[in-house]
Write a protein that binds this DNA or RNA. Sequence first.
DNA 1: AAAAATAAAAATGTATACAAAAATATATTC
DNA 2: GAATATATTTTTGTATACATTTTTATTTTT
Lengths: 207, 207
Amino acid sequence: MLELLDQLKADIINGCLERGRPLRQQELSERYNVSRIPIRDAISVLRNQGWLVAHGKAGVMVPELNWMEAEDLYQMRSLLECQLLEYAFPNITYETLGKARDINRSLNGSDLSLLERGRLNWKLHATLYEVANRPTIFNVVAILNEQVGRYMGFQYGPLQYREISQNEHEELLDLLTQEQPEQAIRLLRQHIEVAGQQLVEYLKATS
Amino acid sequence: MLELLDQLKADIINGCLERGRPLRQQELSERYNVSRIPIRDAISVLRNQGWLVAHGKAGVMVPELNWMEAEDLYQMRSLLECQLLEYAFPNITYETLGKARDINRSLNGSDLSLLERGRLNWKLHATLYEVANRPTIFNVVAILNEQVGRYMGFQYGPLQYREISQNEHEELLDLLTQEQPEQAIRLLRQHIEVAGQQLVEYLKATS
DNA sequence: AAAAATAAAAATGTATACAAAAATATATTC
DNA sequence: GAATATATTTTTGTATACATTTTTATTTTT
């Protein structure tokens, strides 16, 4: 099941599944060599996570990427993640920061798939947010990051966003180590908003 | 399918389904007179909407209500819905306001179930937010309101929140009619936060 | 020839059946 | 008698089969 979900997500990211055309359960069941039941299960999950949309009675389909959605996702991320970091700050330990640094280093690897890279990026952020002990907000933020994942092909491809992002992560961790929460939060807000703006620019340019 | 979902939600709200005990697919399929497949589908949806939680390998169960979750849901609602109203304001017409007023009047009915009442309440808010033309933020807010729905038994029961809420709706619509967006947004923030605080207080007191 | 009505096809939703995995109970060993 | 190992039961996941609904194609009527 998890395997199937990942395969589907990967195929959505790299464009193997046509956008804007209804997906047929039977086609998918043949493509992935399972019956229609697990396909239905997977579709249900992916629909709920925004990887697929139900277009009325035309069936589910891979949604087109659009800059407005990206903008909104990043705006919500900015709002909610800054709030989470604020809650988290008093509880951040050296262990937390160490874990985050380790993850950031592993992002150096050049043999990572888009999906893996995106997941590590989220794991880094999540390491900080976890200690906020706000599971409900955390969950929503997790969903938002999941949805941002659909745009990963763009963000980690043409934009060469990798190094910039990693450097900002390092700065952020340094500010947290120096116990400067306000500046850290400001940097996080900027980190997210700039990423969003760049993605939006790119989407506007290509569409 | 929609029917089954509503039945399950209703039974979760009014406590027919025990909290904190794993749900068996077969039990449910007998209880609701369907096979296990639609039950599985429904569980998947309800899990994604927070009505059920997967407790490790102990199976899915109805989550306990807790004040912290309620607090967080309302905090997020406050943040995001105020943002939506800001976006919406320039596009709000008399027709929009009229629709909202009609819905608010229909909330007078005393023969409404908890689920129906909650849905009307959301429909009123949604009428305003729709014209913001921010479907992505709108969707997240819709999910948050769906989750708040799990607490409806409390909010519309012991707290007798009905009249207060309806009056605030009317005030809000008046402010929007008078084209006073800042005050309207402030009132909305208060409307949401007070509702949240009252619910949290109640939950703290009873638990 | 265009619109409406009917028939054919396809797709989805659901039930049943079976297989794999998990949990529980029973037996066995020390 | 406690701990481990084995067998039994339960629960879930998936395949197949069928019914219902939706879509598409064809025919009929004006």
